[in-house]
Simulated scan of single mutants.
Amino acid sequence: MTTKPAGTYYPAGTIDEFLPRIGRVVEIQGKQLAVFLASDGTIFAADNRNPHPKGGPLAEGIVSGHYLYDPLYDWKIDLSTGLVQAPDQGQVQMYSVKVENGTVWIAV
């Protein structure tokens, strides 16, 4: 699993600010993160950098289940692990997320 160990949690907004299946960019401690709300209510946070050699933002992708579909390169990324699915290869840095009293907290 590629989720960073839990460090200090920072508020990223309220749960109502995140739309299901659509990414939102949040900046925490100088890092630009892509935050996704899956249709089952699970929230994922990742570096907003596509692992493709040409790069690009991840927040523009669409979530289905726990997978992110990147519209730039047609890559499928598992949001639980950060791993790009075969036949492509790569990995996205994921961050621990928790929700308390309607606030989304991300560990950076």
Rank of each mutant, 00 (worst) to 15 (best):
V97H: 02
P5V: 00
D74M: 04
S96K: 15
P87E: 10
L68C: 03
G102K: 05
G102A: 06
T14L: 02
V84C: 07
Q93I: 12
Y95A: 09
G82S: 01
T14V: 09
T81Y: 06
D47Y: 05
R21Q: 15
W105S: 00
L68K: 08
K98G: 03
G30R: 10
D78N: 15
Q29H: 13
G23E: 07
L37P: 06
R49Y: 11
A59F: 15
Q89C: 00
V92Y: 05
G30K: 13
L19E: 15
V92Q: 08
G55H: 11
P20L: 09
W105A: 03
G56D: 04
V97P: 05
K98T: 11
K76N: 00
D70R: 01
H66M: 07
I106E: 06
A38M: 09
T3V: 13
K54I: 06
V99N: 09
L19I: 13
S39W: 05
R21K: 15
E17F: 02
A107S: 15
I106F: 05
K76G: 05
M94L: 15
H52D: 14
D16A: 14
N101Q: 14
G61A: 07
S39M: 07
I22Y: 08
V97T: 01
M94K: 07
N101M: 08
F18I: 03
Y73R: 04
Q29G: 14
L19C: 00
F18P: 03
A12V: 08
S96G: 05
I43Y: 11
E100Y: 01
G41F: 05
T3G: 02
Q29L: 14
G65A: 10
R49D: 12
P11G: 00
G56P: 06
I62E: 09
G61I: 03
L68H: 02
N50P: 05
E100P: 08
Y69F: 15
V104H: 04
A59G: 03
Q32R: 15
L37D: 00
D74Y: 12
G7T: 12
N50G: 01
Q93A: 12
S96V: 07
L83T: 03
V99C: 07
D47W: 00
A46G: 02
K31G: 01
T2S: 13
I106M: 04
D88V: 03
